[in-house]
Design a protein around this nucleic acid. Structure first.
Length: 491
RNA sequence: GUCCCCAUCGUCUAGAGGCCUAGGACAUCGCGCUUUCAAUGCGACGACACGGGUUCGAAUCCCGUUGGGGACGCCA
């Protein structure tokens, strides 16, 4: 029987969770759930300069918004706690000590300035690949320790075997071979005593018994170094799976200049987490040649690394938008209302505690535009005409209203009859209007278009009877009268 | 520059030698339905980067070219 699958998502807290990170997290999540394994969330905050507590909060919130719950990590703890690298410094110290003792690591006293100079020189000479020249490689450990103890600034480097090659068996890429001579003795511990990414990540992955490393393609070239570290540490290698990157429309790495790239931004714009999950799942993965809509559970049931594609994918906001519309329309009325009303409250269109009558009205109003919107944030804009007393007509509406001039008597009658209607309901209104057009022998549109323009200020709206009823008799009459008056029809 | 990865419609992808006159989805365009818009239905447009092999047969395998991306930090 094989060991339990343990995967991890290890973001560095330097801002919101972005699209790429979210997709990596999602694939890890899906794989963990599919394999009945464990998803570990680990914060890689060894860069004290850029890591912030705010970012930690934001990333955790973004993960929760997406519904990507982790089994071990911040807030939930776990057998390998702590899950923040900044709190694991003692552990790294013990690891580096071991590497020093086994001769896999050594002290390096070269200053950053010196290295920078050497790197520049190498570049100017046109050297194949700038790499550390090994100046401090053979300083006896005892001597190095003494110098370090004297307070001489130093880093720790991993001693890489220069000959041979390092082979990676990637679940997605296949076999990838790197010649060892292209690697240099990279830094494990910085002058400030903090571990570098490559060191901390590997030490932790090994310690936390991570079995599968599912991460972005951009880490593929880091992998041979990390493999060397695993070996130096005497730890078994995990399975690597490098998933393709997500690019912007210009095929360069997705970044701010491509527009919204953080999950949070999409949440704010009224995207549903389930739509985001579905869309992200399809970026670099497909189940078959037909299916595009997946529930979270079907994603879990169907996900496999085998079907992850190798090529980079371009993030397409248009498809996400379409999918979000699908998900909004698919929401049951209760669920839809529950998510929609806060948007109106946020926009100041509805008061904060809602009384029962307003709630009932708002429910219907919000439902009337359900299949017109693709993002919840479009709601206030789309429903503006339901609020306030007077309205302003846009250009298209003006033109439609002008058409009323052809039938001044008809609209006068419409106004008068509506004004005295006993029950201002969909049924009554429909009967009234049907009678009018039959009598006048005109098409329905002739009556509806100017009416809609007058009461909504726009050329398009939900079904006219629905709007009429929701608006109520008083406001309808008021707006209709004002509209007719503006085109010279006195009522 | 060096190393590594990748290469099917504008975009996401299906395709693991014959099922491919290459399938689906988004976008775009057209038509239908309809009180408008939306939704929806139908349809159109649209791709195997190029060149060599291998094979009876290649989008699928091999090599090269070109193109794109990534890495080359005391960032992650």
């Amino acid at each position: 029987m094989s060991e339990q699958v343990r995967v991890r998502f290890a973001p560095s807290p330097t801002g919101h969770l972005h699209i790429g990170g979210a997709r990596t997290a999602l694939f890890n999540y899906l794989y963990a759930r599919r394999q009945a394994g464990v998803l570990v969330l680990r914060l890689e905050d060894t860069d004290a300069e850029r890591s912030t507590e705010d970012s930690v909060r934001m990333i955790l919130d973004d993960m929760k918004w997406l519904g990507l719950d982790w089994d071990e990590g911040p807030e939930v703890g776990g057998p390998y706690a702590p899950y923040r690298q900044s709190e694991r410094l003692d552990f790294y110290r013990s690891q580096q000590e071991q590497l020093l003792e086994t001769g896999h690591a050594y002290y390096c006293f070269c200053s950053p300035e010196l290295l920078e100079t050497k790197r520049k020189q190498a570049q100017e000479r046109g050297d194949a690949q700038p790499k550390y020249d090994g100046t401090c490689r053979n300083i006896p450990l005892a001597e190095a320790r003494a110098r370090a103890a004297d307070g001489e600034p130093h880093t720790l480097r991993l001693k890489i075997t220069e000959s041979g090659s390092t082979v990676i068996h990637d679940r997605i890429r296949g076999t990838v071979v790197f010649e060892n001579k292209i690697m240099d003795d990279f830094i494990l511990v910085r002058t400030n005593g903090l571990p570098t990414y490559n060191f901390a990540a590997v030490a932790d992955d090994a310690a936390m018994k991570i079995t599968h490393i599912i991460r972005g393609d951009d880490h593929l070239s880091n992998t041979p170094r990390q493999v060397c570290l695993y070996q130096a540490l005497g730890k078994p290698l995990p399975v690597f799976a490098h998933i393709p990157m997500i690019m912007g429309p210009d095929r360069s790495r997705l970044s701010k200049r491509h527009g919204a790239t953080s999950v949070n931004a999409y949440a704010g714009e009224g995207y549903l987490p389930e739509a985001m999950i579905n869309y992200l799942a399809l970026l670099g993965w497909a189940f078959d040649d037909k299916t595009t809509l997946f529930t979270r559970q079907s994603l879990i049931d169907k996900f496999s690394l085998k079907k992850v594609s190798k090529n980079a994918a371009i993030f397409d906001p248009a498809k996400l938008l379409w999918m979000n519309g699908v998900y909004i329309r698919d929401l049951c009325p209760e669920e839809y209302v529950k998510r929609a009303l806060p948007e109106l409250i946020k926009a100041g269109l509805l008061p904060e505690p809602l009384d029962e009558a307003t709630w009932a009205w708002a429910e219907k109003a919000v439902l009337s535009v359900k299949d017109k919107i693709k993002r919840l944030a479009e709601l206030p804009q789309n429903m503006a005409f339901y609020f306030g007393e007077e309205i302003e007509l846009d250009e298209a509406a003006r033109a439609k209203l002008e058409q009323a001039k052809e039938y001044p008597e008809l609209f006068k009658t419409l106004h008068d009859k509506m004004a005295v209607l006993k029950s201002f309901s969909t049924q009554e209104l429909e009967a009234l209007m049907k009678d009018l057009i039959t009598e006048a022998d005109i098409k329905f549109g002739v009556l509806v278009h100017p009416l809609r323009a007058a009461i909504t200020g726009r050329a398009s709206s939900p079904g006219i009877f629905e709007v009429l009823e929701l608006l109520g008799q008083e406001r309808t009459i008021k707006r209709l009268a004002a509209g007719l008056k503006s085109v010279g029809i006195e009522v």
